[in-house]
Design a protein around this nucleic acid. Structure first.
Length: 298
DNA sequence: TTCCAGGGGTAGA
DNA sequence: TCTACCCATGGA
């Protein structure tokens, strides 16, 4: 068992960071509520599959995160560095939310919800995984999304040797090897099968360097255009992916947002996308977070 | 049986 | 840029 420690300045709410966004319900992530542990099966670049267990403890003005790593083999220094980077990315430890809290002070109701350190929303170590999961949320119910991702992980991802019924998220190469037919017949991704197979193929072949978008500078609009070049990614999915990369100025308008805004601000009347955007205009670079914490606080 | 979900692609205007 | 139609799946 190897341990990694991270010291994070407050405000930082560990449980909110892990559990506020739906990604915690999707394999290979898990929240063990009794122990307040975030668990995830992770495949390292070397091919080894490990189990991450992250927990938090208050130490004065900081929070100490401990990532306990269960392995069947020794970890190299490269493995340790890779895991450290993945945990920091997944929990957004290097993202600055002070601008969000400053704006939120003008809205006492919302500020009461986030002042303790809410704001970070869980994401995946790789952008590939986040794109696949986002495509699995389109035009379906949440319970079906959970099922699609669970089958994708269980049937195509590598097993964790110490607990072989648990699997890591599959790599693009593994999805290509599994084949389009497996995505359709076995994983039951429906018409999303072709989109996800095509994406996996393009990433595996090197034609699409999806991870490079994580560190792409430039405008949010440029990044949005880059996401929309991926088949299966439209306005909703592109804006969701922008949020996952820490750009909150666009709203991912879906049926849930229409329903929420309609009831909260328009007495249940149908609302246009323009009306929805107008309700969050004041939140400048933080629109998505303002919406999200209004939603989850209700 | 029909509708629709945390939509998106395509063709045609 | 807008609209109509199609796309798999499964629960209500």
């Amino acid at each position: 068992m190897r341990e990694l420690e991270f010291l994070v300045s407050k405000p930082f709410d560990f449980e909110s960071t892990v559990c506020s966004y739906g990604w915690i319900d999707l394999a290979p992530c898990r929240w063990i509520s009794e122990q307040r542990v975030f668990q995830r099966v992770e495949r390292l670049n070397c091919g080894q599959v490990v189990l991450l267990n992250v927990s938090a403890a208050n130490i004065g003005r900081r929070v100490c995160l401990t990532a306990r790593i269960q392995t069947s083999h020794r970890l190299t220094s490269n493995d340790i560095e890779e895991l450290r980077a993945k945990v920091a990315w997944t929990l957004r430890l290097n993202e600055n939310f002070s601008g969000f809290y400053r704006l939120a002070r003008n809205n006492p109701h919302l500020y009461a919800r986030v002042r303790g350190g809410a704001g970070r929303l869980l994401r995946s170590p790789s952008l590939f995984e986040d794109v696949v999961k986002t495509i699995c949320t389109t035009n379906t119910t949440w319970s079906q999304t959970v099922g699609m991702v669970q089958r994708l992980v269980d049937r195509i991802g590598d097993p964790f040797p110490l607990r072989p019924e648990w699997h890591a998220f599959p790599t693009p190469e593994q999805i290509v090897r599994a084949g389009l037919h497996a995505l359709q017949a076995d994983v039951r991704l429906g018409y999303r099968s072709q989109y996800i197979f095509q994406l996996a193929h393009d990433v595996a072949s090197g034609e699409c360097d999806i991870e490079a978008l994580k560190s792409m500078g430039g405008s949010t609009e440029d990044l949005r255009r880059a996401f929309k070049k991926i088949k299966g990614v439209g306005d909703y999915a592109a804006n969701t992916l922008l949020m996952l990369l820490g750009r909150y100025e666009e709203l991912a308008i879906d049926s849930e947002m229409r329903e929420f805004v309609s009831h909260r601000y328009f007495r249940g009347r149908p609302v246009s996308d323009t009306q929805i955007r107008s309700m969050y205009e004041q939140w400048d670079k933080w629109k998505y977070l303002a919406y999200w914490f209004e939603l989850v606080g209700d």
